Simulated scan of single mutants.
Amino acid sequence: MATLYIKVQDLLDERGWTQKHLAIMTGLRTAAVSEICNNMRTSINKEHLEKIAEAFGLKDINELMELR
């Protein structure tokens, strides 16, 4: 069975950003960012994904998530 993997922590590591920095940039709760980074969420708000993608300057959803 394929699993959706959210690559937010990978993107943070590549840029040298912290979860707290991303939370400030997006206006999301630090706990929400942590849960997303650790792939602990069973559902993710579309608006959250949009804010995260915008913060990273992503143009392709594949940069943010993948099926594994």
Rank of each mutant, 00 (worst) to 15 (best):
L12S: 00
M40N: 12
C37K: 02
L11N: 04
A31F: 02
A2C: 01
L49C: 15
N45C: 12
V8T: 12
A31Y: 03
L58I: 14
A53I: 07
M25I: 00
R41M: 11
L49S: 14
L67C: 13
M65H: 07
G16T: 07
R29P: 01
I44V: 15
L22W: 05
A31H: 09
I6C: 13
T26L: 01
V33A: 00
K20Y: 10
E35P: 03
K59S: 15
I44N: 10
A2L: 10
L4Y: 09
S43T: 15
D10L: 08
E35F: 10
T42M: 10
N62M: 14
M65S: 08
I24G: 01
A55F: 03
Q19W: 00
A53W: 11
A53H: 10
F56K: 04
R29C: 01
Y5I: 14
M1C: 04
R15K: 14
L11F: 09
V8C: 02
E63P: 08
L49H: 06
I44Y: 06
T42W: 10
E54D: 15
A53R: 05
S43I: 11
Y5L: 13
K51W: 04
H21G: 02
E35V: 02
M1Q: 06
I44D: 05
L4P: 04
I36S: 04
N39G: 06
A32Y: 03
S34N: 11
S43M: 12
